[in-house]
Design a protein around this nucleic acid. Structure first.
Ligand code: DCP
Length: 1110
DNA sequence: AAGGTCGGTAAG
DNA sequence: CATCGCTTACCGACCTT
C-alpha cells in the first residue's frame, strides 16, 4: 500500500495538462485491454483484500512487456493457480511459497497471505486469516463482505465441484457483535456473511442492526440495548449447525425485567464488579443513574427502527464531468453505503469509535484547518524561495539602515469572511461571531462590535451570549477563508516590493519593506504611511475584507503597533516608544502567556486579580533577576522586549529558509470525541491515526524514525462527561516515545508502535480523552536518490509505449514534488475529450486516485451520485497490521509476554510535575508483562483479548525446524534477558551491513532490496554471503526490538520472489535462456528464504510465542 | 560542554 | 441536539556522554 500512496504522489506530481494527458492514455490502454502496468509499478505490497486485483497485476510488475495472463479475472486466476500447483509438485523440494509454506496441500492453513493471495485463499479454511480484512472500515465492509462471499463461493466450487453453497439462513439479518464472544467476532462475521447476513462492525445509535451478538453485557450496555435483540453467540453457532434460522428468543441475553428492577440490578452489579475501582468512579455511577431516563427515551426510539438493508448501487454511470465551481460537502457523507442506509443518523452522535471519525472531525475542526493552512503556507514559501536559488538576481541585502517591518492581519478574520455572504448583516454594526452554535461551542472569531461587550475569541457560546445577548452566530466557511487568504498572499507576492514575506498564519503576515521605504531618500515615514494605506486599500478591494497594519522597526514593535491599529486601521510606530510600551500589559507581548504573567505577578508581589503586570513593571526588573527566574533566553527576551528591543529576523534567503521553514515534526492530534470501551476500539482508532499520519507523510514525502504517543487521561476529579459534548474536559497528559531505528512512513509500523506505546502508558480505555501521535527525526523518503527526473508525459505528445512509460514511471517514484501552482485558473479543454466510459473500465484504485487528484485540483467536481459509484468498490488499503499486533499479544500459552523494544524513559514522565491527587499511570518496564500491571478491572478484558487473538492463531510458516535452527533457538532461550542496558551494549543499529549502510529510511531499504533482488536474477540467485549479511541485519533489527520492521523487509523480499515465480511459471512470455536463468534464481531464492532468512524470524517468533502471519 | 529527551507553553 | 479542544516550534530542566 506504500506504493499505492506513491501512485497518488505520482499523480500529484503531474501538472494539470500532464494529468489529463495521462488519463487519456490510460483510457486508451484500457480499451486495448492492456494491463495497467503503470499502476503495477506502484503496487508493491497490498493486503489480502486486494487479492484478486493483485493476482491480476502483481505478476506483471517485473515484466517488461504488457501481457498479463491473469487479466481476465477470477476464473482465469483460479485456473492459473491450479496450473501452478501442478507445476510445483513437479519441482524438486523447494516448491511452495517462499516463506516456507507447505506444498500444495489444501488443508494447510497457510499464513502466507500477502503476496501470494491466491494460494493463500485457496488453501486457507480459516477465516481468521483475514484479520486484516476485518480492520476494514465499516463503510467498506459491506463491499468487502460481498467480495469475500463471492470468493468463498468460487472456492467451494473449486473444491467440491458443483453446488455446495451455504444456505442463506441469515438473509435479512444485520448482525453486530458487542464485546468478546465465543466464537470470535471474526468467526461470527464469516458465518453470517456467508449465509446471506450483513455484518455491522460499528453500531450507530440509529443504525439498522437486527441482532446484537453478545455473551456478556455490561450493565450500561444492557440498558443501551434494552430494545434490541441481544443474542448469545451460540445462537449463530446453532443456526449454522442446524442450517436454519432458530428463534433468537431462546438465546436472548436480556431477560424480561422491568426498568425499575433493571435500575436496581445495575447498582447491585456495579457495586460488586467495580468494588476495586476508585471512589470517583463509583460516584459516576450515580451520575449515570440520573441519565437513565434519557437513555431509555433514546432506546425507545430504536424500537421503531425499521430494518434497512443496504442497497447495492448496481448501475455504473459514466463519470459526471462537471467543472468545479466550489466543491465542498463531500466531506462527511461521501460514502455510498452510509449515505444510502443510515443517512445523517450515523453522523449524529459520532465519536471516535466511528471508522470515519478522523476525517469527519478534521473537516470541521477550525484548529485543524488553522494548523494545516499554516503548514501549507510555510511549505509554499519554502519551495518558492528554494526555487529562487537558481536566479541569483536576489534582492540586494539592504544597508544597515533601520528596518521597516509591517505586520498585516485581517480584522477578526473568520467573522469578516463569514459575514461576506450575509447581505442581511453589517459587520460594522451587528455583533457577530463564528461558532458551531451550541452553549459550549467555541467562538472562533467575533467582530469588534461583539468584543465591545466583552466577547472574546475562544470563549464559549454560553458565556458570549451572556455578555452579548443579541450576538449573531455565523457558520464556518473554511473554503472561503482559504480563498481569501490566497488572494491576500498572491497580492503580496505579486507586488514584488518586499525584501521578505514571512507567513505567520492564514490571515497574518510579516513584511520587510526596508528597501522600498528607503528608496525615496529622506521621506521614509511618508513612504511607509503611503505603502500601508495602499496595501489596505488594495486588499479591501480584492477581498472585500479589512486588514489592519502595524509598522515599525522590528517585529515586536510592528506587532504592538498592529494591536494599536486594530480594527480596520494602520499605525506606524516611530517615536515615543517607551511611553507607548508602558501602557501595554506584559501578556500582550508575543510569546508571553499566562504562565510567564503569573510568574511575574509572583516576583512583583502583585495581586493576580486586581491588576495585570505592565511593561513598566517589567522594566523595573534587572536582567539578572529575569534570567534567574525565567532562564537565559526567556529572561533576555523579557528584558529586551521591555525596552522595545527585538532582533527577530524574518529574512528568508535560499540559505536560511530550509532551517527556518522546513518542518521538524509531523503530528496528528485528536482530543475530541475520544470515548472508548475496549481495547479493540482503541487499537482501531490508533490505526486510523497511523493511517492519517501516513497519508500526511506521503504528501510531504517524509519519513521519520521517532514516534511519540501523547495521551490525555481524564483527571481524577474531573467529571466523566465534561460540559463540552464529547470534549476532553480536564485531563492529565502522559506521553511516551520510542525510536524506530529506521525512518519509516509505513502505517503498519507506526500503528504497531502506537499500540505498543499505548499499552506501556497503560491508561484505562474508558478514561482516555485524547490521543496524539508525533513523528520526528524526519528525513526525505528518497534521501540519497536521484531526483528531478523528467516527466514522461506532456499534453502534446502522443501516448508512449507501455514499456517506456513503465520504465519512466519507475524512475518517477524517485522524483520529488517541487513546484506549487499558484492559481488554478487554467481551463483544460482536453479534459472533455477523454472517453469516460473507457475510463470507467479502469481498476477502481486507479480511478479513485485519479478522481481524487482531479477533484483536489478543482478540475472535477463529483456529484454525490457519481461519487457513490466511484466508491462502490472501494477497498480498504489496510496493511498487515495484525502481524505487528501479534508482537504485542503473543500469548498462546497464557504465559506473560516479554518485551524487547527500544524505548527511552520507561516510566511515564518521571520529570513531570506531579499534580496533587493525580494518580500516575502505572509504569511497565521493558521486561515486565503488562498484564500484571493492568488495573484489575482491565486484566479481565485483556485476557479475553489474548484468548481472542489465540483463537485466530495460525500455523507457523516453516516446516519443522532443522537441527541447526533448533540449536540457535535454544541459544536464544539462554540468552541474557533483554534489558535497556543489554541493548545499549549491542551493536548499534546504524552500524548497518555495508550494502545497507547508506540507506536510512524504510523505503530506501526496500528499494535497495529490490535492487539486490533484480541483480541476482542474472546471477542464478543471491550470493550466499549477501544472504548472510541480510540475515545478520535482520537479527540486528530484531535484537533492537524492531521485529516488525524485520518482518516487513522479509515480506518485501517475498513479494519479489512471488512475482518472480509467477513470471517463471508463465510460459511463452520470455526467451527460453532468460527464463532458465531466472528459474535458477528463483530456486536459489526460495532455498535461501527457507534455509536462512525465515529461520531468523521463526526463531524469534517461536521463542517469544509470536504468531507469524507473513 | 555538547547533545539528547521530555514536559510545558504559546500562538492563531 | 450537542460539537468538531490542532499542530508546530521553542524553551528550560534534566539526563547522558
Ligand atoms: N482561539 C482562536 C483564535 C483564533 N482562531 C481563528 C479565528 C480567527 O479569525 C483567526 C485569526 O486569529 P486572530 O488571532 O488573528 O483573531 P481575529 O482575526 O479573529 O481577530 P483580530 O486579528 O482582529 O484580533 O484564527 C480560532 O479559531 N480560535
Amino acid at each position: 500500500m506504500d506504493s499505492h500512496r506513491e501512485y497518488g504522489s505520482f499523480l500529484c506530481a503531474l501538472s494539470d495538462e500532464e494529468l489529463v494527458s495521462y488519463i487519456s492514455q490510460l483510457s486508451e490502454a484500457s480499451q486495448r485491454r492492456e494491463d495497467f502496468s503503470d499502476y503495477d509499478e506502484f503496487q508493491a505490497q497490498s493486503t489480502q483484500l486486494d487479492k484478486e486485483k493483485e493476482s491480476d497485476e502483481k505478476p506483471t510488475s517485473l515484466q517488461s512487456n504488457g501481457t498479463d495472463p491473469f487479466d481476465d479475472g477470477l476464473d482465469d486466476m483460479l485456473a492459473q493457480i491450479e496450473e501452478e500447483d501442478r507445476q510445483e509438485t513437479g519441482h524438486l523440494g523447494a516448491e511452495g511459497t517462499a516463506l516456507g509454506s507447505k506444498t500444495g496441500a489444501k488443508e494447510d492453513a497457510d499464513t502466507d497471505s500477502d503476496s501470494e493471495p491466491n494460494f493463500h485463499g485457496l488453501k486457507s479454511h480459516k477465516f481468521g486469516d483475514f484479520g486484516t480484512y476485518f480492520r476494514n472500515k465499516h463503510i467498506k465492509q459491506q463491499i468487502a463482505d460481498k467480495e469475500y462471499v463471492e470468493w468463498e463461493q468460487q472456492r467451494l466450487l473449486q473444491q467440491h465441484g458443483a453446488e455446495n453453497d451455504h444456505k442463506k439462513i441469515f438473509a435479512g439479518c444485520i448482525i453486530h457483535v458487542n464485546g468478546h464472544t465465543d466464537p470470535s467476532i471474526d468467526e461470527i462475521h464469516r458465518m453470517v456473511i456467508l449465509r446471506g447476513g450483513k455484518f455491522l462492525s460499528y453500531l450507530t445509535k440509529k443504525s439498522a442492526a437486527t441482532h446484537i451478538i453478545c455473551d456478556k453485557l455490561t450493565p450500561r450496555k444492557s440498558i443501551e440495548f434494552k430494545h434490541r435483540k441481544v443474542v448469545k453467540a451460540k445462537w449463530i453457532v446453532d443456526c449454522v449447525e442446524k442450517n436454519e434460522l432458530l428463534d433468537w428468543k431462546e438465546y436472548r441475553v436480556i431477560s424480561d425485567v422491568t426498568i425499575d428492577q433493571r435500575r436496581l440490578d445495575q447498582f447491585a452489579s456495579s457495586k460488586s464488579a467495580k468494588a476495586n475501582l476508585e471512589d470517583h468512579e463509583a460516584a459516576n455511577n450515580v451520575s449515570e443513574a440520573f441519565n437513565i431516563e434519557d437513555e431509555i427515551d433514546d432506546s425507545l426510539d430504536l424500537e421503531q427502527d425499521e430494518v434497512v438493508v443496504p442497497k447495492d448501487h448496481e448501475a455504473a454511470q459514466p463519470l459526471n464531468s462537471k467543472l468545479m465551481e466550489n466543491g465542498d460537502d463531500h466531506v462527511t457523507n461521501d460514502n455510498p453505503i452510509v449515505a444510502s442506509t443510515t443517512e445523517s443518523h450515523s453522523i449524529r452522535g459520532m465519536n471516535a469509535t466511528h471508522p470515519d471519525f478522523v476525517r469527519h472531525f478534521f473537516a470541521k475542526s477550525r484548529l485543524h484547518h488553522l494548523s494545516r493552512w499554516k503548514a501549507e503556507l510555510r511549505l509554499r514559501f519554502l519551495k518558492k524561495i528554494a526555487d529562487q536559488k537558481d536566479f541569483p538576481h536576489d534582492r540586494e541585502p539592504y544597508a544597515t539602515s533601520e528596518r521597516i517591518i509591517l505586520h498585516v492581519d485581517f480584522d477578526c478574520f473568520f467573522a469578516t469572511v463569514s459575514c461576506l455572504n450575509r447581505q442581511d448583516l453589517d459587520i460594522d454594526t451587528d455583533p457577530v461571531a463564528v461558532t458551531h452554535g451550541g452553549q459550549t461551542s467555541d467562538i472562533a472569531s467575533c467582530n469588534y462590535i461583539a468584543r465591545r461587550q466583552g466577547v472574546k475569541n475562544g470563549m464559549w457560546g454560553s458565556r458570549a451570549m451572556q455578555l452579548c445577548p443579541n450576538l449573531i452566530k455565523l457558520d464556518y466557511d473554511f473554503d472561503a477563508y482559504e480563498r481569501t487568504s490566497n488572494e491576500f498572499y498572491n497580492y503580496l507576492i505579486n507586488k514584488k516590493i518586499f525584501d521578505h514575506i514571512y507567513p505567520v498564519s492564514i490571515d497574518e503576515v510579516l513584511l520587510d519593506a526596508t528597501s522600498f521605504c528607503h528608496a525615496n531618500g529622506e521621506q521614509v515615514a511618508e513612504t511607509v504611511r503611503a505603502l500601508i494605506d495602499d496595501i489596505r486599500t488594495d486588499i479591501k478591494n480584492i477581498t472585500h475584507c479589512t486588514v489592519s497594519i502595524g509598522a515599525s522597526s522590528n517585529v515586536l514593535l510592528a506587532k504592538l503597533a498592529l494591536r494599536h491599529a486594530k480594527p480596520n486601521g494602520a499605525f506606524y510606530l516611530q517615536e515615543n516608544i517607551p511611553d507607548f510600551l508602558d501602557s501595554i500589559a506584559v501578556k500582550e507581548l508575543p510569546g508571553i502567556g499566562g504562565s510567564i504573567e503569573s510568574k511575574l505577578c509572583e516576583i512583583l508581589k502583585m495581586d493576580r486579580e486586581s491588576s495585570r503586570p505592565m511593561i513598566s513593571h517589567l522594566r523595573s526588573l534587572s536582567y539578572e533577576k529575569l534570567v534567574k527566574v525565567f532562564g537565559k533566553k526567556t529572561g533576555m527576551k523579557l528584558f529586551d522586549f521591555a525596552r522595545g528591543k527585538d532582533e527577530t529576523s524574518i529574512s528568508l534567503t535560499p540559505s536560511n529558509t530550509a532551517s527556518i521553514l522546513s518542518r521538524k515534526s509531523v503530528s496528528v492530534d485528536v482530543n475530541y470525541g475520544i470515548r472508548f470501551e475496549n481495547i479493540h476500539e482503541v487499537d482501531r482508532f490508533l490505526m486510523n491515526l497511523a493511517e492519517e499520519l501516513h497519508s500526511r507523510l506521503i504528501k510531504l514525502d517524509l519519513c521519520g524514525s521517532r514516534i511519540t504517543l501523547r495521551l490525555a487521561r481524564r483527571s481524577i476529579d474531573a467529571p466523566v462527561e465534561p460540559p463540552k459534548y464529547l470534549g476532553m474536559g480536564v485531563c492529565d497528559m502522559f506521553s511516551k516515545s520510542s525510536s524506530l531505528g529506521v525512518a519509516t512512513n509505513d502505517w503498519g509500523v507506526i500503528g504497531a508502535e502506537m499500540k505498543a506505546l499505548y499499552r506501556m502508558l497503560n491508561i484505562p480505555v474508558n478514561e482516555l480523552r485524547g490521543v496524539a501521535v508525533t513523528l520526528t527525526n524526519l528525513t526525505g523518503t528518497n534521501e540519497g536518490y536521484a531526483r528531478q527526473m523528467k516527466l514522461p508525459f506532456s499534453a502534446n505528445t502522443a501516448p508512449k509505449s507501455v514499456d517506456k512509460a513503465q520504465c519512466e514511471e519507475k524512475r518517477l517514484k524517485a522524483r520529488q514534488k517541487e513546484e506549487i501552482t499558484e492559481s488554478k485558473t487554467k481551463t483544460l479543454l482536453e479534459y472533455a475529450n477523454i472517453d469516460w466510459n473507457t475510463f470507467q473500465e479502469l481498476p477502481i484504485d486507479i480511478r479513485k486516485e485519479i478522481t481524487s487528484e482531479l477533484k483536489k485540483r478543482g478540475i472535477l467536481n463529483l456529484s454525490r451520485d457519481t461519487k457513490k459509484m466511484y466508491d462502490r468498490n472501494k477497498r480498504s488499503s489496510a496493511t498487515a497490521g495484525k502481524v505487528f499486533m501479534q508482537q504485542l499479544l503473543p500469548l498462546q500459552t497464557g504465559r506473560p509476554a516479554e518485551y524487547a523494544r527500544v524505548v527511552e524513559s520507561a516510566s511515564s514522565s518521571p520529570r513531570k510535575k506531579r499534580k496533587q491527587d493525580t494518580k500516575v499511570a502505572s509504569k511497565i518496564d521493558l521486561d515486565e508483562s503488562f498484564i500484571q500491571n493492568l488495573p484489575s478491572s482491565l486484566q479481565d478484558e485483556v485476557m479475553r483479548d489474548l484468548q481472542y487473538q489465540g483463537l485466530n492463531k495460525q500455523l507457523d510458516l516453516s516446516s519443522s525446524p532443522k537441527k541447526s535452527e533448533l540449536d540457535s533457538s535454544r541459544a536464544r532461550k539462554n540468552a541474557p534477558r533483554i534489558t535497556e542496558n543489554w541493548l545499549k551494549n549491542q551493536k548499534r543499529f546504524n552500524e548497518l551491513p555495508t550494502f545497507l549502510q547508506k540507506f536510512r529510511t524504510l523505503p530506501e531499504i526496500k528499494r535497495s532490496l529490490d535492487d539486490w533482488f533484480s541483480m541476482t536474477l542474472t546471477q542464478n540467485g543471491p550470493h550466499e554471503d549477501d544472504v548472510a549479511i541480510f540475515t545478520t541485519y535482520l537479527d540486528d533489527l530484531i535484537n533492537e526490538g524492531h521485529f516488525s520492521i524485520a518482518t516487513l523487509l522479509v515480506k518485501h523480499l517475498k513479494v519479489n520472489i512471488d512475482a518472480l515465480r509467477c513470471k517463471v511459471n508463465m510460459p511463452n512470455s520470455f526467451s527460453p535462456e532468460r527464463s532458465f536463468s531466472e528459474g535458477d534464481a528463483l530456486k536459489d531464492w526460495i532455498k535461501s528464504m527457507d534455509k536462512m532468512i525465515n529461520p531468523v524470524l521463526n526463531n524469534y517468533a517461536s521463542v517469544n510465542n509470536i504468531v507469524l502471519t507473513i
